[in-house]
């Protein structure tokens, strides 16, 4: 499988002393889903920003689609970024634009994406239909609830059909029902487009859903993925260091006290509730 994202000994230091990432190395292959767990301030969001070329590493190298983006000029980075979708932590929708304008933004502004004017509206509608928010086209982000904003941001991230997707804390600050809806959308996106993704979260349940459930397009619901499972790899970050990389089984078998804090074995009743 080709590598879509590779970190080689990446360090990021802020203001000369604060180490946000410390000798980080990993390789994300096509079709994989990476779940990044870690406490607040462990460097999860910085990792995504480095992977997007928004923050430059202090040392080490970053490869996206086998291109070295470490010192790539901003102009060239736009082409790389046009193949990546990103959901920001607080959705980061543009307040001054309607939902439709927000979703159309990457189509209009990514130079590498050429789309005809008449194809624009159907693409925006399709993307919003995917997150079940087609009726909000003309509304402004401030008029939407937190969960709806997050869904619009997902629609904006996937409207260009990117090969690689980064989700920064997609369920942070949301109630359990909305959080489940968001995770279901992420699974639906993964299964529909066979995309590769990095999901930053501090909730073990999110990773559990991603790793063990798949989307059934016929019923429109999530169902257990079956024995073949999904191609999910867990990574745990602590103080900017990668302290764990492996499967869910390996994660659950770990005895490390820090990692153990993120592992919560879901109870049967809770699991059933999520399937609804």
């Amino acid at each position: 499988m080709p590598s879509l994202l590779r970190f080689e000994n990446v360090c990021v230091t802020f203001e000369g002393t604060v180490k946000a990432l410390d000798r980080m190395s990993f390789d994300v292959q096509q079709g994989q889903t990476r779940v990044l767990l870690g406490a607040a301030g462990s460097g999860k969001s910085v990792l995504l920003k480095v992977a997007m070329g928004l923050v430059r590493p202090t040392s080490g190298r970053v490869f996206v689609f086998d291109q070295d983006i470490t010192n790539m000029p901003e102009k060239q980075l736009f082409d790389v970024r046009s193949r990546i979708g990103m959901l920001f932590q607080e959705s980061a929708l543009f307040d001054s634009m309607t939902v439709a304008q927000n979703v159309a933004y990457p189509l209009l502004n990514q130079k590498a994406i050429s789309i005809k004017r008449e194809e624009m509206e159907p693409a925006v509608r399709n993307s919003l239909r995917f997150v079940e928010l087609e009726h909000t086209l003309e509304r402004y982000p401030s008029e939407l609830s937190g969960g709806m904003r997050r869904r619009v941001a997902i629609a904006r991230a996937i409207v260009t059909k990117p090969q690689l997707l980064y989700y920064d804390s997609p369920t942070a600050g949301l109630d359990p029902i909305t959080a489940h809806t968001i995770m279901a959308l992420l699974i639906k996106e993964r299964d529909a487009d066979k995309s590769t993704s990095l999901i930053v979260t501090h909730r073990y349940q999110d990773g559990n859903l991603i790793a063990n459930f798949r989307y059934n397009p016929e019923t429109g619901r999530l169902e257990p993925a079956g024995p073949e499972g999904t191609s999910t790899v867990y990574m745990v970050l602590k103080d900017g260091k990668l302290v764990f990389e492996g499967s869910q089984e390996e994660l659950e078998l770990t005895t490390d006290s820090y990692i153990d804090k993120f592992v919560r074995r879901p109870e049967p009743a809770e699991q059933g509730g999520r399937e609804e």
Partner: peptide, 16 residues
């Protein structure tokens, strides 16, 4: 406000 809500980063991520 755009900076602290990551809209500036989003702008760069989305091609502007």
């Amino acid at each position: 406000s755009m900076k602290v809500t990551e809209q500036i980063d989003a702008m760069r991520a989305l091609g502007t």
